[in-house]
Design a protein around this nucleic acid. Sequence first.
DNA 1: CTCCTGACTCAGC
DNA 2: GGCTGAGCCAGGA
Length: 130
Amino acid sequence: MQRKAKPKALKTKAPGRNRAAGKDSFFESVYEVVRLIPKGRATSYGAIAAYLGTKLSARMVGWAMNAAGNVTPSVPAHRVVNRNGMLSGKHHFPEPGLMEKLLKKEGIKIKNDTIVDFEKVFWDPSRELL
DNA sequence: CTCCTGACTCAGC
DNA sequence: GGCTGAGCCAGGA
């Protein structure tokens, strides 16, 4: 699925661009929210993105996670999964299986790289935090 | 400065 | 009902 036909430079000063809590980089905001995720819970990129105001671009959340392993303290990226509850980022971890391993350790059941009862462990920042 | 990619998500076919 | 297309923002080459 290659992104063909790129819409040229349409960046007409995105009207949104909501800087959550006035962080220097929206990355830090993502880290903060992820770190706030209670143990035994998980959230989705879209949820975090929506909380930050960039729900239209859940990709950025995942992108931030990419750098998460580079920041301190370590961000529990394993608690962040896609909207389906599937461990999409497990492939990006230092070692495959580490993600579900950590989740299982917290009490979350994983099956086929997918969180069982994701709705139960789902943690919405805009709902729990707000 | 320009182009691309990327751990997503929704809508359409 | 599964897959493809398209949109989003931001950082790196």
